[in-house]
Design a protein around this nucleic acid. Sequence first.
DNA 1: TAACAGAATCTGACTTGTCAGGTAATCCTG
DNA 2: CAGGATTACCTGACAAGTCAGATTCTGTTA
Lengths: 164, 164
Amino acid sequence: MVERAEISTAKDAADHELILAFGRLQGAANRLEYLLGRAIEQECGISHLMFEVLLILGRAGGQGLSMGAISQEQVLTTGGATRLVDRMEAAGLVERTGDPGDRRSRLVRLTPLGEQTAVRAARVHAENIERYFLEPLPAGDRKRFMEDLRILSHTARDRLPRLR
Amino acid sequence: MVERAEISTAKDAADHELILAFGRLQGAANRLEYLLGRAIEQECGISHLMFEVLLILGRAGGQGLSMGAISQEQVLTTGGATRLVDRMEAAGLVERTGDPGDRRSRLVRLTPLGEQTAVRAARVHAENIERYFLEPLPAGDRKRFMEDLRILSHTARDRLPRLR
DNA sequence: TAACAGAATCTGACTTGTCAGGTAATCCTG
DNA sequence: CAGGATTACCTGACAAGTCAGATTCTGTTA
């Protein structure tokens, strides 16, 4: 009846194995994210989150996106988005203009510098992904693995509650 | 020669696809981590990183681990480890004692409360992993997928430089 | 054994996120 | 159309990391 004894049941042993395997996944994901984020920071002078926002804005094009749309695409609260865009604006990567249709809202749009940076950072990022993520995988597994990830990422995304 | 034109090459299109696919992976990993971390916080009253450290210490057993060993197992600098263990000590989950063999070093060890919390949190965590991570995957794919992850996590781990 | 390089940890200053609570504009609804 | 609910964004207070440098101890070596 000592607490220690609990961890020796069969169920707990299976749990432990699951946690270990999943921990390796999380560890790998974190380390990869760290590595890729570092590369972008050093080679392009922008943070990982700034890079994400540059990509989002590049994909959106045209008028730009509202602050709310940006924070919803990221794992960021609205307050966090405000501060991130503040820094990006100070760095000359984006500009904020009022939305003519809704004076509460503000549209965020890439500057020419922001576009150049986005293109260059995307290239660097893709190279690093190939190098660190795909290369170590057995060649025959890559395609199937990417497909699994696609499925998984969608189901996970749909299940997870959004931030405010 | 306009910068915009660069993004329309075939290579850049492939890069873009790779970045998108990988972004989904990162997004899923982050959202899962967020979700699982939240569950642990709410149900067990400890942060995600505290949980990791509890598991590490539980696995180590015996004398406990030095601060350096803890920071190396985590994606944490030594300064960050100091502050995390400070909070865990204040919460009564661990205790720090001097290492008799090296007076610079300090050994961190689970308290009885820390052990109980580790066991309980591990159970909650395993349940949540199954619910959010494995369940959405097609049943036949789970085993193979876990194996891929195992391989990948090892290669990624080996390639990534350690923090200080 | 004195001196110095290196290791283990801690600390001050800072960064960048969260959270809760503003403020201004918009949308309903009687 | 007045007035309350809601929406969009921002801000002050705080949390929890990073980083560089200080402190204390160890081990080697001249």
